[in-house]
Each structure stands twice: as structure tokens, then as C-alpha cells.
Simulated assay, not measured.
Amino acid sequence: MAPLPPPRTGDHSTADLTGVIRARRWQLWRPRLIGLGIVAVVITLAAVAWFSPVLALEKVNVSGGELVDHDKVSDFVLDADGGTPLPQVRTGEVEDSVLEQFPKAAEAAVHYAGPRTLKIEITDRTPVLAVEGASGYRLYDGQAVDLGVVDEAPKDLTVLGSDDDPDRATVAAVVRFMGSLRPELREQLSTIEAEDKNSLQGRLDTGDHQATVVFGDSSNPSLKVRTAVQLASAGRTEIDVSVPSVPVTD
């Protein structure tokens, strides 16, 4: 029997090289394929979450603020978005709609609070003036938004007193005047009166001194009140700062 021919070295090397190339290709494509698989899974889960009734909005928790009825806010949002999958609920749009529907709120921060729940944190508008009337004290903020009627004016809030109900222009002028003051100045005006929009006067109380002050119209409120405070602190009790650069005192 004739001996078998030895293996050809070239064929063996070619097979080994082919295997190495295949292994390297697999090493190159494996993480890509795994990444594509993960992306596919994420997209699938996102699609399920986007359309799934399992994540439908069912509850709205409302907190903060005292001027807005929490139950009414919750009912309003549920009427608009209840049953909608939570990923489809845009928090910014909910905030805008709540502020439009409930103008007594200055802010309405909306957050996801679970698979079926929204949380809304209400911040009240800040009253700067209480208008005394037959039914109580009507509150206004610095933008003349009506904040409703309360039985007693909040502590340190300036009260607009009048024998008759002031007209809208007069109230607007007083609100502009009060809304432009820093809180520490505003709190020193215990009362303010106005026959019309150009005839504002009030009672100044600095804690150590009191004075009656004529302000005139609603222009330059900060300058007028600062000037009046300085004169009251010097012992003046009757002050006219309708022209703040030329104050008149008694």
C-alpha cells in the first residue's frame, strides 16, 4: 500500500484564517446585535406604555395653596385627561390649563406621581390689598386679580376703606400703587383710602411712629412711601407726598 500524502499546509492555513475572520466578525457584530435587541425591547415597552390602559390616569393629588379648591382642580384635570395613558399627558399643558381655569393660583407645578397618578402643587397669588365691603374684605393681588372675599383681612395687609364701593378705576389705581411696593414698605401702610384714582391717602405705621399721608395719584409709589417713612420717623404726623420731590408736612 502506498503511503498517504502529507496534508497540504496551504489548505489548513486557509481554513484557520476563515475561522478567525468569522470569529472576529461575530465579535464585531455581537454587541451591535445586542444593542439593536435592547432598542427593540425599549421601543416595544414604550409603545405598550404609550397606548396601554394599564397606565391610564386615574388620580390627581392636589396640595398647597388656600385660595383654590383642591377637589375642583382634581376634578377638572380628570375630566380633561382622565383615562389617558400617563405618558401621553403633557405636564406643561396641564399646568397651563389649571392656571387658566383657576386664576387665583400663581403657579401649578405638575409631576408624575406613579403609574396612574399626577401630583399638582398649587401656589396662591399673593394679596396686596383688601377692599372693605358689606360682605367682608375682597382681596386683590398686584395684577388686580380678584382673589375672593374673606370675613377678616389678613394680618399686615393694607385695607382700602371707603364709605361707598369704589369704582373699578379707583381699585385698579390702588392695586397698582400697592403692587409696586416692596413687602416691607407695603406692610407699613395700615390703611389706604381713595375718593378716586387720583386721590390716594393712607395711614402709615412704622411701629414707632404714625402719620397720615396724602399720596395723590398712583405714580411713583416706592418713592412716595419711602419719603413718607423718612418724614414720619422724624416725627411728622401730617405728610403730603403727592409731589415726592417737594413733600409738605405739618
Rank of each mutant, 00 (worst) to 15 (best):
S218I: 02
R30H: 07
G65K: 11
K224P: 00
D167Q: 11
S52E: 01
S97Q: 13
A15I: 08
G19T: 08
D240T: 06
T84M: 00
P115N: 14
D96W: 00
N198Q: 13
V60M: 08
A49W: 06
V241F: 03
S219R: 09
L147Y: 05
P183F: 00
A232H: 03
P87A: 04
R30T: 08
V145L: 09
D141I: 06
R32I: 11
P221W: 02
L67Q: 13
G133N: 14
R116Y: 02
E187A: 10
S135Q: 15
S245K: 14
T237E: 05
Y140F: 14
E100L: 11
V62N: 04
P247R: 03
R203H: 06
D208L: 04
L36A: 15
P183S: 02
A108C: 08
M1W: 10
K224W: 01
E93L: 03
R8Y: 08
K224Y: 04
E184T: 06
M1P: 08
Q143A: 15
V174H: 06
A40K: 09
D141K: 11
T18I: 12
N198W: 10
G83D: 01
R32N: 11
L78G: 02
S218D: 05
E132L: 13
V241P: 00
W26Y: 10
A234T: 06
L160N: 07
Y140G: 02
V20M: 02
T126H: 13
A173S: 11
N198S: 12
V175Q: 07
R226L: 05
E58I: 04
L33A: 11
F76L: 03
I192L: 05
P87F: 02
D79Y: 02
G142A: 14
L78V: 05
V42T: 09
P115M: 14
I38H: 09
L78S: 04
M1D: 11
A2P: 12
L204W: 01
G82E: 00
D208A: 04
V68S: 10
Q210R: 11
A40T: 14
S63C: 15
E152R: 14
L4E: 03
L157Q: 01
A80V: 12
S74Q: 14
L33Q: 09
T237Q: 06
E195Q: 15
A23W: 05
T117S: 15
A109E: 15
P247M: 04
V48P: 04
I34A: 12
D164N: 15
V39T: 14
V248D: 05
E187H: 08
L200E: 00
T212G: 06
V128G: 07
R32V: 15
A108E: 07
E95N: 12
R30N: 06
L17K: 11
I192V: 09
T18R: 14
V213K: 02
I122V: 12
A228E: 04
S222E: 06
D69W: 10
G65F: 03
S199N: 14
A169V: 08
L4Q: 12
A106R: 15
L99V: 00
D71P: 04
S199C: 07
S233Y: 02
L57Y: 00
L147W: 10
A172C: 08
E152M: 13
W29L: 13
A113M: 11
G148Y: 10
V20G: 04
F177H: 04
G207F: 02
I120C: 04
S199H: 12
K197M: 03
P166E: 02
T191V: 12
T123D: 12
F102E: 09
V94S: 04
R24H: 05
P127C: 01
A40I: 09
